[in-house]
């Protein structure tokens, strides 16, 4: 089975590979999958606590080329979205964009799971302070 051009393109030039320090203000981290299943994704978002907009996103993936491409695409899509808009990204959007064959659909599901996990981590950590930029800033300086 040959790979689609878009999968190859993302695999060869993955966007936003890397990590944020977990406790940076506004950062939410999702770590999904399992090593024994052959796929683990770490996806992070960095939200502007004043505007609620995702300013940056990063990933690291252990998995097949389609899993790497799915997470790379996800980080691209996340940037510039609000937290609520980000929650609407569906794995089927990724399947369509990357033209993933049926056996690779679970790689896109993993990417959606990673987005959700990052969003909920963000909400748990920073949800209170979102939209209340001043408060968040004070909180961080005083800690």
């Amino acid at each position: 089975m040959a790979y689609s051009d878009k999968v190859i393109e993302h695999y060869n030039n993955p966007r936003n590979v890397g990590s944020f320090t977990k406790d940076t203000p506004g950062v939410g981290t999702g770590l999904v999958g399992a090593p024994e299943c052959g796929d683990v994704m770490k996806l992070q978002i960095k939200v502007n606590l004043d505007t609620g907009v995702i300013e940056d996103a990063k990933f690291k993936t252990f998995g097949c080329g389609s899993a790497i491409a799915s997470s790379s695409l996800a980080t691209e899509w996340l940037k510039g979205k609000t937290v609520d808009q980000a929650a609407e990204i569906k794995n089927t959007d990724i399947v369509n964009e990357l033209k993933l064959p049926p056996v690779k659909i679970h790689c896109s599901v993993l990417a959606e799971d990673a987005i959700k996990a990052a969003l909920s981590d963000y909400k748990a950590k920073w949800g209170e302070s979102a939209g209340a930029g001043q408060a968040a800033a004070t909180a961080t300086t005083s800690s």
């Binding site: 399992a34 683990v40 770490k42 690291k60």
Partner: peptide
Amino acid sequence: RDMSPLYELAKEGVDIKSIHWKAE
């Protein structure tokens, strides 16, 4: 490996087996 979350964890000294993975 530069792209691998597992490699990163291992380099940070985290034992991958100690993490509670939610295997499907």
